[in-house]
Design a protein around this nucleic acid. Structure first.
Lengths: 208, 208
DNA sequence: TAGATTGTTAATCGATTAACAATC
DNA sequence: TAGATTGTTAATCGATTAACAATC
């Protein structure tokens, strides 16, 4: 896996979104300042890990005082580009694709699914939760026109490599892939796999 | 010295389901034997890592020969309990819960969602893809009666802690949680978080 | 036996965390 | 100054992987 922009270690990068979500919760609860020890209880991550993680990003706190929640939000917002709208395409409008579109990251106003693609002619031309559904072969024109570089793929395994290649042709650089088979992609393309069955099986491995 | 499965390192445990899936693919392709070097190309994991992972489970291969696919499947099946039916409950029948139920891990015949629960009275009593939907307060009787110990929770963050407590009362020991807030649970309860928004945000952290 | 590939060793790399000096 | 908590150090732990002896 490649290192993110500001040289954040992979393990830290995975925790940034978790921290950010808790900061927003604290903000809505009207809590203006927090100590690493208190935050540790909330997020279930040791305070030493939290302080070390934060130090990758900057000097965010004050000794003997803690962290200003509003300041944390401000800094983490820019790290997560939460102040910029990120438009995304969904590929595959099956049960899962539909659920994603219906939900559309409603709680994060900077993340927006703005178009979807499917092979099923019965779906093409329809609109779901305001999101237009196009045919797969329109992808190469629609995606660049909309300036989209991020795709969420829910296509079946068999189709996922072919579909990824079309996405890359269309200018996509980041893919969140719900199909489990490993994609062969150029080095500059980011892929993350979200494999529901594998997660479940791993969970069950820890059962007594 | 052959390690019992609860001694598997976390990192290895996460890869077991991936290996297993590829073994099944090899089987359907009629490939009867494979070398760690070949498998490495398929799963995108270095061959040294593969051999080391396998050695946690047993002496699975033969020097100068490779691994018998049928043997790998046999051993990994028992490790993953893929030969035993695991019944599961889905909590929360929103867009995501519905997608999971409609899909129902169709490709893994040992994983079965066999009941669902929701607070919405309009849903209670209905059946979705053959899965009955109960009211939340029926959980404590239905779940033990069905001998279910695994739950998939898609309830909103606010409800997730309360819902988890009810699940634990009903005898659930493993929870796959789609809500991002960290659950406070006793030590013997397994929880894994599957946070779609966080995954997406982490993906975007790696964008140039 | 000759050739090939496993399973293991040992070195390296990356992540975590206890402890505390620095700092507010 | 006294008290508190950060940011950092250094030790530890866990994961990865190159290299190769053991083995088929």
């Amino acid at each position: 896996m490649r290192t993110p922009k500001h040289d954040l270690p992979e393990a830290v990068a995975k925790r940034i979104p978790i921290y950010y979500r808790y900061f927003k919760l604290l903000e809505t609860d009207g809590i203006e300042r927090i100590k690493s020890e208190q935050l540790a209880k909330l997020v279930a991550i040791p305070s030493a890990t939290i302080r070390r993680d934060f130090s990758y990003i900057g000097d965010l706190g004050r000794s003997g005082y803690g962290y200003e929640v509003s300041h944390l939000i401000q800094i983490f917002s820019t790290v997560l580009k939460a102040d910029i709208l990120t438009k995304m395409a969904v590929i595959g409008v099956g049960n899962l694709g539909r659920a994603l579109i219906e939900n559309n990251f409603r709680r994060n106003d900077n993340l927006q699914i703005s178009c979807a693609f499917d092979t099923n002619p019965a779906l093409v031309g329809q609109t779901l939760n305001g999101v237009p559904i196009y045919a797969i072969d329109q992808l190469v024109t629609v995606i660049p026109a909309a300036g989209i570089t991020t795709a969420i793929s829910t296509v079946p395994s068999e189709a996922s490599q072919g579909s990824a290649e079309q996405l890359i042709d269309a200018g996509i650089t980041s893919i969140l892939n719900f199909a489990p088979t490993r994609l062969q992609v150029p080095r500059h393309i980011n892929v993350r796999y979200l494999d529901l069955t594998a997660e479940l099986q791993t969970l069950l491995l820890f059962e007594e």
